[in-house]
Simulated assay, not measured.
Amino acid sequence: MKKVVISLFAILASTGFAAAADAGCDAFKWPVTREQALFPAAPAAQSGATLTVGQAVDFSLEAVDTVSFEVPPERAPAAGTFGATANVTVPPDGELQLSLSDEAWNDVVQDGKTVKSSAFSGVKTCPGIRKSVRFKLAGGAAIVQFSGAKKADLRVAVLTPE
Rank of each mutant, 00 (worst) to 15 (best):
K2Q: 13
V5S: 09
I6R: 09
I6E: 02
S7A: 15
L8F: 13
L12K: 05
S14C: 15
F17R: 00
F17Y: 14
F17N: 05
A18C: 06
A19Y: 12
G24T: 11
C25V: 09
D26R: 13
D26F: 05
D26L: 10
K29N: 14
P31Q: 07
P31M: 05
V32C: 07
A37G: 04
L38H: 05
A41C: 06
A41F: 08
A42Q: 03
A42N: 05
P43I: 06
A44V: 07
S47Y: 08
T50H: 11
T50Q: 13
L51I: 01
V53Y: 02
Q55M: 10
A56S: 12
V57W: 09
F59T: 09
S60F: 04
L61M: 03
E62I: 07
A63P: 10
A63C: 02
D65I: 04
D65G: 05
F69A: 00
P73H: 00
P73D: 03
R75A: 13
A76S: 13
A78N: 01
A79D: 11
G80V: 08
F82D: 02
A86K: 04
T89R: 14
V90P: 10
S99M: 05
S99V: 13
L100I: 12
D102T: 03
N106L: 15
V108N: 04
D111Y: 12
G112Y: 02
G112L: 04
T114C: 00
K116E: 14
K116R: 15
F120C: 00
K124T: 14
T125C: 01
C126I: 11
R130I: 08
V133L: 13
L137T: 08
G139P: 07
G139Y: 02
A141N: 15
A142R: 03
S147N: 00
S147Y: 02
G148W: 05
A152V: 02
D153Q: 14
L154K: 12
L154T: 03
A157W: 07
L159R: 08
